[in-house]
Amino acid sequence: MNLNAHRTMQLYGALLLLPAALLLTAFAYLPTVTTVINSLFLPGFRGEPAAFVGLDNYRVLMDDPTFWKVARNNLLYALGTVPTSMALALGMALLVNARLPGRGLVRMAYFTPTILPMIAAANIWMFFYAPQIGLFNKLLGALGFAGVNWLGDPGVALGSVIVMSVWKEAGFFMIFYLAALQAIPPELKEAADLEGTSRRSFFWRVTFPLLMPTTLFVLINALINAVRVVDHLFILTKGGPNNATNLLLYYVYENAFSFFDRTMAATITVVILLVLAVVATLKFTILDRRTHYQ
């Protein structure tokens, strides 16, 4: 009887997990497993079965200079977008958390880029960056400077893409910081004020440490977005010129759907997954231990 009751409870629990487990299996676990398998085989031609080649595909990838260029681009892209957008988000959140005339309007303005689809935002920025009629070059021209080919110059194009991404992301992260700031009890500030604590000192000794959980959350999201979001490349540069703005996921897309090299696409995907797994592990082991959670 008791054992039966225990079994029933276990069955009950398993049934509760089933919907989530089914969805995750269908859309996350199965594709991951097939991707890993695909990266270990070479497809057969004219109906031949696929041949197991072990790590050969990875060796080919390591010898591919374009892959290394794209990987370097993505690293620069992450270094360019993640700290900048986070710092900007925190700054904006501090600003709109303070007493400020028209603060609702400012909050909305900061959040607007987040509401826009990435494709739409990229289209707007196309007009900013356009060499002849673009806003930036018009402004530069009015000041008497020569225009820059923002998206066509291999030395500038990645920077232009980074600036647009920061503009798009910062408002979204600001919302998290704003929510966290509002969760800090106002008495903490009052208690610090009574001791004559300067605003700067209060920020570094109280606000910033209390925002750490949010900072970690935003950091992980920003890192994932740096790898995951490439929609704007389709509009702005298509990875060019000469792969100057090509990012890993866009390179996967190119391999799979432009060059029809599904094996190479699967191989790069596995590498991306491994890198992200390492980053996540570092986050959970090192940073979490130093963070105060309430």
């Binding site: 008495e187 208690a191 001791e195 004559g196 440490p209 209390l210 750490m212």
Partner: peptide, 17 residues
């Protein structure tokens, strides 16, 4: 901070971290 007084709050206002 310049008034030379201290205060105990109802919520204690301790710094949780």
């Amino acid at each position: 901070g310049d008034r030379g007084l201290s205060m105990v709050f109802q919520s204690y206002a301790l710094f949780p971290h």
